[in-house]
Amino acid sequence: MSCFLPRSLVTRALSALAAAAALTTLAACGSSRARPVAPAAAAPPAASPPSASPSMPSMTPPPSAAAGPAGAPVSSNAVMIQNFAFAAPTVIVKVGTTVTWTNGDEDPHTVTAIGGPFHSPTLTNGARFTYTFTTVGTFTYMCTIHPYMHGSVVVVAR
């Protein structure tokens, strides 16, 4: 069967894993009937998101930026969804503000509060979702289709 290993991936794998483990991976890739030649030796990646390790067989360490929204909070009532990310990932608004999310991606997304009060329908390209925040607090949300997309709205008093 065919099998790819991107150069960047090989570099990461070789740097992160014991050589024997990497060779095992490569060998397995070369044959659909390959049997494991050694016990799994891949150490849990040091930079994994908390939910990714050590509870899952590993292949490659993800960048540390994977864990949740990054960047400084921005005062804005508009959030763009672009390149599978919320921009800005954290916005600050005053209580009573209506926040608008706009999907700029070709792929569908949702804006779904985690244990919270709002849940958009599926937003196709160009679609918008609005929600008015009437209480102070921090509201975290995600896209249920691409659950690694997270954002938050910090609502402060007027």
């Binding site: 990714a52 899952m56 067989p57 590993s58 960048p63 994977a66």
Partner: peptide
């Protein structure tokens, strides 16, 4: 079921 690329959600916690 393996961590193919967790950054993009390609794994199972």
């Amino acid at each position: 079921l393996f961590a193919m690329y967790p950054t993009w959600g390609w794994g199972t916690d």
